[in-house]
């Protein structure tokens, strides 16, 4: 954003400049506030505490697994949404993107009532397979994937739509099956969008709080992710909460920076 205004050589009208500066300050000031109040001297010992290490490890692990799950199920779903000619596809698209706008805590309640031990589906998982998802690390992954997958689906579906259908058809005339054409022609074409979608869902999963605490509960090392640790530490030890928040901030910025070049050009169009 800053780059665009710097390149703009014409004078900026005040009616835009004032709210633009206010908007930028609004977004940046809280981060500065966080840095200003950080307990820099105790930071080392706070970060070395097992709670922080456990929460960070769990957060990175679960967000990555949730992204993997999202890709595994979300890419085929995006392909169906992009290629299907059924008149129900619009309804399906609307339904699967609901978690995008749904308050995460509502998602958590829905997951608990569906996949919980006494839930609509969960009771059979428990009875037949002995699987109970709430309060487990797998439950964290499920909760995170629930809120994160729509980001990947929406991004990848857009890419499938704009990808050159001609190449897919050419592959078909040469005898390739649809699955073969998807794997060897279309997917390589949309790698930047796949990455963008994966990064978006990974970031969403990393920051996930409401669905996780509702569905997976809170236990250090098992289901206590970084955002939950930050929230609970705020009640008893604000210093530790700030330290945890700093770690999350650094991780987020690092991911953005690492993927900026690949992500921003395409991501801006989403």
């Amino acid at each position: 954003m800053a780059r665009a205004t710097a390149r703009d050589r014409r004078r900026l009208p005040a009616a835009l400049a004032v709210p633009a500066v206010a908007g930028a300050a609004f977004l940046v000031l809280p981060l500065i506030g966080l840095l200003a109040r950080a307990p820099w001297t105790d930071l080392g010992s706070l970060l070395r505490s097992p709670v922080v290490a456990d929460a960070l490890r769990l957060s990175l692990f679960c967000a990555t697994l949730a992204t993997g799950l999202s890709a595994l199920l979300g890419i085929p779903l995006a392909w169906v949404l992009a290629r299907s000619t059924s008149r129900f596809v619009a309804l399906l698209r609307a339904l699967v993107t609901v978690p995008l706008v749904l308050p995460p805590v509502v998602g958590g309640v829905a997951l608990l009532l569906t996949l919980g031990r006494t839930g609509v589906v969960g009771q059979y998982l428990d009875r037949w397979f002995g699987i109970s998802l709430p309060f487990t690390t797998a439950g964290v992954v499920v909760a995170e994937a629930f809120v994160a997958m729509p980001f990947l689906v929406v991004t990848v579906e857009g890419a499938f739509r704009s990808a050159d259908r001609g190449l897919e058809e050419a592959a078909a005339t040469l005898g390739a099956s649809r699955l073969f054409a998807l794997r060897h022609v279309t997917l390589p074409l949309i790698v930047p969008s796949l990455l963008a979608g994966a990064v978006l869902s990974w970031a969403r999963a990393l920051g996930e709080f409401g669905a996780t605490i509702t569905f997976a509960g809170n236990f250090p090392g098992r289901t206590q992710t970084m955002p939950i640790a930050v929230y609970l530490a705020m009640e008893s030890d604000p210093g530790a909460a700030i330290a945890l928040a700093l770690v999350l901030l650094v991780v987020s910025v690092a991911v953005l920076a690492a993927l900026r070049d690949r992500w921003l050009p395409r991501g801006g169009a989403v």
């Binding site: 608990l112 009532l113 919980g116 006494t118 709430p134 309060f135 605490i213 997976a216 509960g217 809170n218 236990f219 250090p220 289901t223 929230y231 609970l232």
Partner: peptide, 16 residues
């Protein structure tokens, strides 16, 4: 299994 943020959350998990 879980350390809930308040007592009513504990009660809800039992109730469900």
């Amino acid at each position: 299994a879980t350390l809930e943020p308040d007592v009513k959350s504990v009660l809800t998990k039992v109730r469900l």
